[in-house]
Design a protein around this nucleic acid. Structure first.
Ligand SMILES: [Mn+2]
Ligand SMILES: [Mn+2]
Ligand SMILES: [Mn+2]
Ligand SMILES: [Mn+2]
Lengths: 219, 219
DNA sequence: ACATATATTTAGATTTGTCTAAATTATTTA
DNA sequence: TAAATAATTTAGACAAATCTAAATATATGT
């Protein structure tokens, strides 16, 4: 498999996880930052290789083989992310790009040994679960701030909306990935939330809360 | 730069180190396990990019930029080899193939951090020097076992042939880098040598002696 | 149901990296 | 030095991955 094929497989997998039953050409093109015509070409190739189900105009979905393949790439991606943060002191917002390259290195022994070195981690630095050697995938341990119950605590681990506007808002309010956050109160009327971040009280609108991912921690 | 371009640059660099002033199309084709016509195509591209000096029928050599590029790839390759052996318990005969992939990962910070994690190693697992961040390459003051005079002593510091077959032979005979070795006798007839390694008498063929690097020590 | 808008595919082109077969240049040998 | 041999380049082809522009199919609205 080429890097490109692997990237497409992974994108289809993730779009599937985000709720889509069947992936449309345009959705995949947008995700891959490429043109729909390129996607059509690739879907034909992947279909030939038995990695996706694809019928003209009907969209695509992964075959069992495709799912297995995707899980193995995701496993590599997330293990490398852990390595970069745990062993090389990278900040967790710097690791994705590099893992995007490292996930394509071909060596089963390498990834097994890496897993061992890292002590068989269950989660990557963003709170996403790491598939095990057999492709078993734990449920995600992160959820949107808007979905967390009152009096629970967690750590800011990601954003759903990564637009400049939203990120600037977070900067301006000193909300950074890694910050501990506690839900103090939820306003029924507008679904806004009062939270504690680093001993500061903040009042966040529903829009904000619905775009900030929190990794639960045990208090 | 593509992986392929980087592999060509590295091959030209190594052929240069092995004595060739100017690299012929055929020599490069053999090293790259490809066809001479493919090499011609690539040399034109690399020349366009200012990485090699190339004139039709006159062979090729690296420009200053080409040398700088080669050193950076070699640095990455050898650092990853050290990582695989030191941190992931790979045997020295298993690391080359994987390093061949890892050397193409693009991230300056990654390689700096890796260097730090490994404690700024000077040599890779095969005794080859690792270029530093500025492209300084240590002089290898080593010579082939086959070139050492009788009754001199030294330490095994590297291999010329780093094929798995040769490395496994060394393992099987308990010859490791760092071992002290003394040349006891040379057989004129077949150029084989009798040596003492760790108080063991060994008889090594010319083929072996011509592929094992020894660093002389004062007795 | 039909026109319009949207989504998707096809056709044809481009780049990279490779190949085979043929042509050309350089080198060696007699 | 002329012929033979070896090395190298060119010509033309192919697969992968991409693009633009045009054609076609699907979905939507009135
Ligand atoms: Mn990738
Ligand atoms: Mn991640
Ligand atoms: Mn390589
Ligand atoms: Mn090496």
């Amino acid at each position: 498999m080429t890097h490109s094929e692997e990237n497409y497989i992974k994108a289809i997998f993730h779009l599937g996880f985000e709720g889509l039953e069947v992936i449309s050409t345009n959705a995949l093109a947008e995700r891959m930052e490429t043109k729909p015509s390129s996607v059509t070409d690739m879907l034909k190739r992947l279909s030939e290789k038995g990695l996706v189900h694809y019928k003209k105009y009907q969209g695509a979905s992964l075959t069992d083989l495709g799912i297995k393949t995707a899980l193995s790439i995701v496993r590599k991606h997330r293990l490398w992310e852990v390595f970069l943060v745990e062993k090389l002191d990278f900040n967790w917002d710097e690791v994705h790009e590099i893992a995007e390259q490292l996930e394509h290195i071909k060596s089963e022994k390498l990834i097994d040994k890496l897993d061992e070195l890292l002590n068989y981690p269950k989660l990557d630095p963003h709170g996403d679960p790491i598939p095990d050697k057999n492709g078993e995938l734990m449920e995600a341990h992160k959820q949107l701030l808007s979905q967390m119950p009152i009096n629970t605590s967690g750590i800011c681990v990601g954003v759903k909306d990564s637009s400049a506007a939203f990120l600037r808002f977070l900067d301006k309010n000193n909300i950074a990935l890694g910050n501990k956050i506690k839900i103090v109160e939820k306003e029924e009327f507008d679904n806004s939330v009062r939270v504690l971040i680093d001993h500061r009280q903040l009042h966040l609108s529903q829009q904000i809360a619905a775009n900030l991912y929190i990794k639960k921690i045990n208090m």
